[in-house]
């Protein structure tokens, strides 16, 4: 099933990499930007099922991204990409409401599994809500 994924990273090459991995290995649609300040605009324009964001970016950090995404739609999982070795920040993002984190450098399998799990989680959550709602 095709879903829309938004990727935020101020490093263009990293964006390209993630975009390449996702578009070659999954059927999902990717929107990518290296300007995290475009987040609101992009989210207003499109309905995303998943947001992947770098933790430390110029202009806006990952924790803010989590808040902004969840303000708009709490069912959208946010996956944070963080550098290896900063266990504390990884903990912090999870406590902050991130669905999961990926440490750099990563293997593409890791990225793919995380994405699938996050999307799966969202589907279940939405179904649960639908069941409860009716």
């Amino acid at each position: 099933m095709q879903e829309k994924i938004l990727i935020l990273d101020d490093e263009v090459d990293m964006l390209t990499l993630l975009q390449t991995i996702i578009s070659t290995k999954t059927p999902h649609d990717v929107v990518a930007t290296n300007n995290p300040l475009e987040l609101e605009e992009l989210m207003a324009a499109d309905a995303f099922s998943l947001v992947i964001s770098d933790l430390k970016m110029l202009g806006r950090d990952g924790l803010e991204v989590i808040d902004l995404v969840h303000d708009k739609d709490a069912t959208i999982p946010v996956v944070i990409i963080t550098a290896y070795g900063s266990l504390e920040s990884a903990q912090e993002v999870v406590r902050h409401g991130a669905y999961d984190y990926i440490t750099k450098p990563f293997r593409k399998e890791q990225v793919l599994i995380t994405i699938e799990r996050a999307l799966e989680w969202r589907r279940i959550t939405l179904e649960n809500m639908k069941l409860k709602g009716h």
């Binding site: 990499l17 390449t20 550098a83 450098p105």
Partner: peptide
């Protein structure tokens, strides 16, 4: 170490692809 993780991730990622 933190800074270098980014470029390594990109290099390895593209090498993989």
């Amino acid at each position: 170490a933190h800074e270098i993780n980014n470029p390594i991730a990109i290099i390895l990622g593209f090498a993989d692809i």
